[in-house]
Design a protein around this nucleic acid. Structure first.
Length: 307
DNA sequence: ATCGGTCAAGGGGCA
DNA sequence: TGCCCCTTGACCGAT
């Protein structure tokens, strides 16, 4: 079991997700921003290594406007060596990487132009992971998409569009249950048709839980991951602000709640992404609270970390 | 130097 | 149909 956090580190004082307005686009600006972001990514990974954090989500803003038509700069070639170097560090330290394209990336849109843009955006995410030479356990997670007034048809459209994707995307893509539209059940139904792992989102599942979901849904979800090619199942963990509105993520982790989650998932090994505002601070807290869990302990022993 | 409206992109829900 | 929400930070123009 690895424990990680997404995109931003608030401790070390650099941003790997620096971007700028489309209006101020220039190739020079783009180059400087990418360089800044890659340098910062290296620093974050070093910080993570020093703190026994072996799971990290790389921001989609690493290369701003990567799939936008305005961008004609060959950033892949220009920064190739840097990507290779970062990838070597990740592999050497047995780190796990994920990415999460944002809400505009819709495979199952009724509009084909939106699907085509989504395909380009997914290709950009796959390119990043490929440039780093990461194996296919480095995943790109998305939601199923919109319902468009007919869920059955929208699921079928997802399936047919998925089949059309390039294999470099397909072998990294995983679907995540969301809080309103597509439940864990829906994701499992899609998995029954095509081989796409289902990423378990604990908080979304609490908000969008189907009462007819019987049997061991955790087991059914985790077994959608092929241990040889996909690695351990990934799960997103977040919790609600005590007095907050629905969906509001909490400021820092509630260790007691997290331990309940660890208990619930006990028979299964997995990698956990903590979607919590104070990022690395909560990841370190969670790690400390789970240090006696055999899943965490045994992983750390394999990494020559000085625990 | 500080403030805050707005940012590439979509979809759902509501008035 | 038009406006707000989603998550969220931070860019950058206005002052």
């Amino acid at each position: 079991m690895r424990i990680g956090y997404p995109c931003i580190n608030r401790t070390i004082g650099c941003n790997a997700n620096k971007t700028f307005r489309l209006k101020s686009y220039s190739e020079d600006r783009l180059k400087k921003t990418i360089k800044n972001n890659l340098d910062c990514l290296e620093r974050i990974l070093t910080f993570n290594r020093e703190n026994n954090i072996f799971f990290f989500r790389i921001t989609s803003d690493l290369v701003p406007f990567a799939s936008h038509p305005i961008n004609r700069f060959n950033w892949k070639k220009h920064f190739k060596e840097k990507f290779v170097k970062i990838g070597e560090y990740i592999a050497k330290n047995r780190m796990r990487i994920s990415m999460h394209p944002d809400q505009f990336t819709l495979i199952n849109s009724v509009r084909t132009d939106i699907f085509e843009r989504a395909r380009k955006e997914l290709q950009y995410h796959a390119d990043i992971l490929n440039l780093m030479n990461l194996d296919t356990s480095a995943k790109i997670q998305i939601h199923v998409g919109g319902v468009y007034g007919d869920k059955r048809r929208s699921i079928r459209r997802f399936l047919s569009r998925f089949k059309k994707l390039d294999s470099s995307i397909k072998n990294r893509l995983v679907i995540e249950n969301d809080d309103r539209l597509y439940s864990l059940n829906d994701c499992l139904e899609i998995n029954a048709e095509v081989e796409i792992p289902v990423l378990f989102d604990y908080f979304h599942n609490k908000l969008n839980f189907e009462i007819q979901m019987r049997g061991n849904y955790l087991e059914n979800t985790f077994k959608t991951w092929n241990s040889k090619t996909d690695g351990l199942p990934m799960a997103d963990y977040s919790s609600q602000e005590v007095n907050g509105m629905r969906q509001k993520h909490s400021e820092t982790i509630n260790v007691k709640d997290f331990c309940i989650f660890l208990e619930e998932t006990k028979p299964f090994d997995l990698d956990i992404m903590l979607e919590i505002k104070d990022k690395e601070k909560s990841a370190i807290k969670a790690l400390n609270s789970a240090i006696k869990d055999v899943r965490v302990f045994s992983f750390l022993q394999t990494t020559s970390s000085g625990i």
